[in-house]
Design a protein around this nucleic acid. Structure first.
Length: 222
DNA sequence: TGCCAGGCCGGGT
DNA sequence: ACCCGGCATGGC
């Protein structure tokens, strides 16, 4: 089937249209991990404020967050929304990191790609997208990250059925592309860029979309 | 003003 | 195994 060719062609076209996206917008692997948890169902600009608060407080390290009391952590990350639940999620990850890997990301990241993904999925508060984001953007290992934009874009271009789940969507891309972390990194970033620009939940701008000539539908995609 | 943003969990069917 | 409510701030 032509899916692999199509997905590669879509990538080439998006890269040409938007240029490299330079993801992840974080300075260290640890900052990427924290950002991945904080950005769950939340605008990145809000996450930046929360991360800046943690930085200013000198707490953006495994040790810093490990020692920080939960109420203070929640207060610092307030701008990212869902701050009570996210504070617990950060804590559960950090505690787990210390219990199992001496608080050292390098030890955690020494695992092979799929083993690392499975490990992360055992942590409460880390689901498929967050796990994949950490594996790809913090550990730099080739797993394809899917999200609401990926789903919406693929659905709108009739590449998937509505009931398609996360793992199935992920497999669609991984089976169609070479297993290359650099490629997966750029592809997901480009899909987010495309989604933010032309494929929002309401007011899609189909006529200006770089994929406008592909089969698509404006209805639904929710 | 209301809706949305780079999800995930827990409880009820 | 699904389905759904809850979680919450800031921007347009």
């Amino acid at each position: 089937m032509g899916t692999s060719k199509t997905l590669k062609e879509i990538y080439d076209r998006l890269l040409k249209h938007f240029g490299p996206q330079h993801w992840w917008p974080g300075e260290t692997p640890f900052e990427v991990v924290i950002g991945a948890i904080l950005t769950q169902n939340t605008n990145w600009s809000n996450v930046e404020k929360a991360i800046n608060n943690l930085k200013s407080a000198g707490l953006l390290t495994p040790e810093g967050l490990h020692k920080c009391a939960l109420p203070r952590l929640a207060e610092l990350i307030k701008p990212s929304g869902y701050f009570n639940i996210k504070a617990k999620r950060l804590k559960s990850f950090i505690d787990w990191l210390f219990d199992n890997y001496e608080g050292d990301l390098n030890q955690l990241f020494s695992k092979e790609t799929s083993a690392l993904r499975e490990e992360l999925l055992t942590v409460k508060g880390i689901g498929p997208e967050t796990a994949d984001s950490i594996v790809l953007y913090a550990a730099n290992k080739p797993t394809f990250v899917c999200d609401a934009y990926t789903y919406r874009i693929c659905l709108r271009h009739r590449m998937i059925a509505e009931e398609t789940g996360y793992d199935e969507l992920k497999t669609l891309f991984e089976d169609a592309l070479p297993r290359d972390a650099k490629l997966f990194n750029e592809y997901h970033a480009l899909l987010v860029r495309l989604g933010k620009t032309y494929c929002k939940k309401t007011k899609p701008l189909c006529d200006q979309c770089p994929l406008e000539d592909l089969p698509h539908t404006i209805e639904d995609a929710g």
